[in-house]
């Protein structure tokens, strides 16, 4: 059971990402967090395992307050939370199997890591998970040879190798095409249900959230503005979360703003070049 109370996060740049978020996840359910870009979705998820240090507030997982742990205790706590990333974040130059086994790093010592000798039960589990996510026979393939969907499958399997009590999922489908997105969502939700693991899932695709989540939390400007069943997402609620728009088709897609756009070359640069030449 995860309880987040009055969580605040202010970045050194002064940007307020979270403005007092409180929520409880007490059932083995998939909780989708939706909201516009910059609403604090990613920060919220990263505060749970302290990849981002919260400014104030508490995150309690099964009785332990994560925010108060020392580095060492935090590592032990992180073992209990599996995380899945938007950009997969695999170790590109290692094989699929090594990537899966890296999910066990919290449980094995450095020497075993160094020799790549993991316990037999870990390896059996890894083969099982490879089967489950549909990557049978890929164990010796290097991660950089995989497609996006395949990489995300490896990412999911790595997170589940931890046998987590909680899954943190950060925009798992934002870099994938619609069909692969649905496949990936089906795998995540299926695995969470099979294992009774609650999952906290950031997503900006409202339709995907509606069709796969048990519960939806709407975030706007670092605050919870909606918390309820997916069928409670009506025009009024969506307007509250995202702002004014024609929601009649409820096909709303969060827009990825200015990603990968190059700044134009400044004229001053060319002048200084010429001046010296």
């Amino acid at each position: 059971m995860l309880t987040i109370t009055d969580l605040f996060k202010r970045y050194p740049t002064g940007q307020r990402a979270l403005n007092g978020v409180s929520l409880t996840v007490d059932l083995p359910q998939v909780v989708a967090i939706i909201g516009p870009s910059g609403a604090g979705k990613s920060t919220l998820i990263r505060c749970v395992n302290r990849l981002v240090e919260p400014t104030s507030g508490s995150v309690v997982l099964d009785g332990t307050d994560i925010t108060k742990l020392s580095r060492r205790e935090l590592r032990r706590a992180r073992r209990r939370m599996g995380m899945i990333f938007q950009e997969y974040n695999l170790v590109e130059r290692l094989t699929v199997m090594e990537n899966l086994l890296s999910g066990r790093l919290g449980y094995v010592g450095f020497w075993r890591t160094y020799r790549r000798r993991y316990p037999p039960e870990d390896i059996r589990m890894a083969y099982g998970l490879l089967d489950r996510v549909g990557l049978t026979g890929y164990e010796n393939t290097r991660a950089d040879a995989l497609s996006g969907g395949e990489r995300q499958r490896v990412g999911i399997a790595r997170a589940l190798m931890q046998q987590p009590e909680l899954l943190l999922v950060d925009e798992p489908t934002a870099s994938l095409d619609p069909k692969t997105s649905r496949q990936i969502m089906r795998i995540i939700v299926g695995l969470a249900q099979e294992r009774g693991t609650p999952a906290l899932l950031n997503i900006h695709d409202v339709v995907l959230a509606q069709s796969f989540a048990d519960r939806v939390i709407g975030l706007r400007a670092g605050k919870v503005v909606f918390d309820g069943a997916p069928n409670g997402l009506d025009e009024k609620v969506l307007t509250e979360i995202y702002g004014e728009e024609d929601w009649s088709t409820t096909v709303a897609r969060g827009e990825d703003e200015d990603e990968g756009r190059k700044p134009p070359r400044r004229r001053g640069d060319m002048e200084s070049e010429a001046a010296v030449g």
Partner: peptide, 9 residues
Amino acid sequence: VYPTAWKPP
């Protein structure tokens, strides 16, 4: 039954 041993290539 899945294998319990694996060596990196």
